[in-house]
Amino acid sequence: MDIANLMKAIGVKMTPFEVAQGITVYIKLPSVSKYSECSDPYKTIFYCVVDEEGKQIFDSAEQIENKVDMTVQVKLNQEISRLFVEAMNIEDVESK
């Protein structure tokens, strides 16, 4: 088995998202252990929005709540929600 191909198929995906012209962040769905911590919009953004290397951008959920414009918060949450729905689409999962 080719491990590189396996990891390419099942590894962590990062989806680019342009928050403003020329400014791109990446959406990475949380690990199973962090999923339960995505209990509100601010924590969801905190755990799911990363830089091009996969590192968290924000210092805390409170930073997002207090310092990120509401329109940007809504756009980020909508994109994260879209990716969650897409990732959990059972019909797209192949089974044998």
Results as ranks from 00 to 15, higher is better:
Leu6Arg: 11
Glu65Lys: 15
Lys55Pro: 09
Val49Tyr: 04
Glu18Trp: 03
Lys55Arg: 06
Gln63Leu: 06
Tyr47Arg: 04
Ala9Asn: 09
Glu53Thr: 11
Leu6Gln: 06
Gln21Lys: 15
Cys38Ser: 13
Glu86Gly: 05
Ala87Lys: 11
Asp59Phe: 14
Val72Gln: 07
Lys67Gly: 09
Val74Gln: 08
Ile64His: 02
Lys8His: 15
Pro16Arg: 05
Ala61Gln: 09
Thr44Trp: 01
Val19Glu: 01
Glu86Val: 09
Gln56Leu: 07
Glu65Leu: 11
Gly11Gln: 08
Asp40Ile: 06
Glu94Ser: 02
Ala20Met: 03
Asn77Lys: 00
Asp2Leu: 04
Leu83Trp: 02
Glu52Trp: 08
Thr44Arg: 04
Thr24Gln: 10
Tyr42Ile: 01
Ser95Asn: 13
Lys8Gly: 08
Asp59Trp: 04
Ile10Met: 07
Asn5Met: 07
Lys13Tyr: 08
Glu18Phe: 03
Met70Pro: 10
Ile57Gln: 00
Cys48Val: 03
Asn77His: 14
Lys13Asp: 03
Ala87Thr: 13
Ser81Leu: 10
Tyr42Ala: 01
Thr71Ala: 15
Ala20Gly: 01
Gln73Cys: 12
Glu37Asn: 10
Tyr35Phe: 15
Val72Lys: 09
Val93Asp: 02
Gly54Trp: 10
Tyr26Phe: 13
Thr15Pro: 13
Glu62Cys: 09
Leu29Gly: 12
Ala20Asp: 11
Phe17Cys: 00
Tyr47Phe: 14
Val50Tyr: 13
Ser39Thr: 04
Val72Gly: 00
Leu76Thr: 13
Leu29Asp: 10
Ser60His: 13
Val68Thr: 08
Ser31Thr: 15
Glu37Val: 05
Ala61Leu: 09
Val93Ile: 14
Thr71His: 11
Ile80Asn: 05
Met1Ala: 10
Phe84Trp: 14
Pro41Trp: 05
Glu53Phe: 07
Asn5Leu: 09
Gly54Arg: 06
Pro41Arg: 09
Glu37Ser: 15
Gly11Thr: 01
Cys48Ser: 10
Pro16Lys: 00
Lys67Pro: 11
Val93Trp: 14
Cys48Glu: 00
Asp92Arg: 06
Ile64Tyr: 03
Met7Tyr: 12
Asn89Thr: 05
Ile80Glu: 01
Val12Asp: 00
Val74Glu: 14
Lys55Trp: 07
Gln21Asn: 10
Ser60Asp: 11
Met14Asp: 07
Asp92Asn: 15
Met88Gly: 02
